[in-house]
Design a protein around this nucleic acid. Structure first.
Lengths: 352, 352
DNA sequence: CCGGTTTATTAAACCGGTTCAGAAGGCAGC
DNA sequence: GCTGCCTTCTGAACCGGTTTAATAAACCGG
């Protein structure tokens, strides 16, 4: 006689059940729950008590439909799996986002897309289905088309870093120029005169800016500083290092990398070539991931607080969705953390 | 005269607009879209054409409300930020999940919770709000209370690995026993007679099983094999190594770690103590993260295909939600990847 | 004790889909 | 021509909330 589906014994209470039990109308329950003015305090308390007693919580689907909001924020990851996996940034960023979203009753919808072609479709789909109220725009690119796209889709957004074009969205940024400059200053102070920077893909603004900051800092100190572009992967970080160290003349005595993963691969390449870090070659990373502290030699790196970044970005996006006008936010700048992988420049020739 | 909010010019078309334009009723549009039987082929094509022309896509919120499904799956991460960040497993797993979910019109809702106390509440909230149709249960623990909780909440689920208790949910597992056994065999074959395993927290079943497999394998080979428990972090991986290497007698000549992060920290500790890897100490990791290939010495590790795991888990969960009865799935077992960090045992005493 | 304002509450419309009972039309068989 | 059965399509109810217009009750100064 009983139906075959009875998952979770008994139908869940709806707002109508609560209203009936409390002897009021549906509307009043709704008012009480969203504590609107114009509800008698005693009534309100009674309604809330009944709701709590019945274990009722508003169904998000119904709420979404009537309020035309999704109570969810989206993050689209475009990087290749390999690179996302090695990069500690996103997990930390997400943890920070979550810290804000969870108490605000919002959820994070994650979409990861392998090839760049589908990226726009992913945003379109998120918007068409009304799956999210806003999105985080990470890994900004030059003249990023996503800004116009996301705006035309009617989504709110916040950018991680400043776009290089006019943007309708608030930006939350961490200035990494100082960190890069500090690294160069640190290395020059150690006697290095020929530096190199292994950058991430110049399609990405932050990689580009780090490269530019590196070149500016080198020029300011009057030292040579060349840049090699990679895709951010350990593989290419290693290859770039191999290439740099193979130079007959003008071989760098210090290499800065745009992330820790590449820096570690760089250290490995140097060691494999018989060099000692930092004796023959100084190396510095970026992001200051946990592992940087625990390798040998421990890795000099530039630290950014990704968790905080996520939290602030989430707050900004929520405010933006709530139509609170918002200025751009600058977080505490990235700072250099000196460890063992950087040391005095070798005297004459890097190899004994 | 025009209102101040006109984000996305013009109201989006609803199913009623499509119906009117196609000269049919709402219901028929719905039927056509979900290609139900009983719709004239010509009519169906016309409806679809009109819908496409108007750029209409069903509003997920409305769909969710009427079908009582959320079209979203949840993943709750409980680990500390530090550990999640260093671990390549989740990003890869998520990429695999996404590969299946996206074409199926489903989304992934991510929740990360810092302290264990709130974990149950997170599942409860996900269920109470009807935010997701099912969840992935990762990092299973002994007698995991989440199984009963999630079932009582009426959610579907799939477990990553086999629980140690009766489970109402399908399991998708990768057997890592073979990989661990292969590692021990490999090391014993290299002449090692005193091994150690630096395990993750024994609260987690997979850490526990790897430890057990290690002990069984050592016993089978008649060699000594001790286990040290950690929390999976690089810090504790390093500390465990320090402790093991400080032993006066019975110091291991080979250490296997339950993840690559700890293994790297272990290598660093050994090198810092003046030992050479693999000359004085052999080291192996677990997960075969990208970086394992690119460090020096490159890291022997046990590889599991996390992307595939995610994809299969997602498929299973979707099937489970669709009430398709499902057997447990075993993926291709973890396999040992031998690299430079393991070598012949030192002759007499591990140090020179 | 009355008109007017404020406060508390209700009933009903609405959000945008899905679903179901039944109507309309076409066709076969008797 | 009537009955019965498909196939195709419509209209309305429904999912569970929010929101608004209308109403009832209380208050208040004169």
């Amino acid at each position: 006689m009983s139906d075959e589906t009875h998952a979770g014994r008994g139908r869940r209470p709806t707002i109508a059940d609560v209203a009936q039990r409390a002897g009021v109308s549906k509307g009043l329950v709704s008012f009480a729950l969203n504590d609107r003015p114009g509800v008698n305090v005693a009534t309100r308390d009674r309604i809330l008590a009944v709701a709590a007693e019945m274990g009722w919580a508003p169904d998000l689907r119904a709420r979404s439909l009537s309020t035309n909001r999704s109570f969810a924020l989206g993050l689209v990851l475009r990087r290749d799996t390999e690179i996302v996996a090695g990069d500690p940034f996103f997990p930390a960023f997400i943890a920070g986002v979550e810290r804000e979203l969870s108490p605000a009753g919002q959820a994070l919808v994650l979409a990861s897309v392998a090839t760049g072609l589908l990226e726009a479709d992913t945003y379109r789909k998120l918007a068409a289905e009304r799956r999210v109220d806003g999105v985080f725009l990470a890994d900004l690119r030059a003249g990023d088309e996503r800004l116009a796209l996301v705006e035309s889709l009617g989504l709110s957004a916040v950018t991680l870093g400043h776009p290089d074009i006019e943007s309708p969205f608030p930006a939350v940024s961490v200035d990494d120029v100082d960190g890069v400059a500090a690294t160069v200053t640190h290395l020059v102070g150690l006697g290095h005169r020929t530096l190199a920077h292994v950058a991430g893909s110049h399609d990405m603004l932050h990689a580009r800016r780090r490269s530019a900051a590196f070149e500016v800092a080198c020029a300011a100190h009057g030292v040579e500083g060349r840049v090699v572009e990679t895709d951010f992967s350990a593989r290419q970080g290693g290859e770039a290092t191999r290439m740099l160290l193979a130079e007959e003349s003008g071989r760098p005595t210090a290499i800065t990398y745009s992330n820790d993963l590449m820096a570690l691969a760089g250290v490995a390449v140097a060691q494999r070539a018989g060099m000692s870090v930092p004796h023959d070659l100084s190396v510095s990373g970026f992001d200051d991931s946990d592992i940087a502290r625990y390798v040998y030699p421990s890795l000099t790196s530039v630290a950014t607080d990704a968790v905080e970044w996520g939290a602030v970005a989430a707050r900004s996006l929520l405010a933006s969705i709530a139509r609170v006008p918002l200025a751009d936010t600058e977080l505490t700048p990235a700072r250099l953390v000196v460890r063992e992988s950087t040391g005095p420049a070798p005297q004459t020739h890097p190899r004994r």
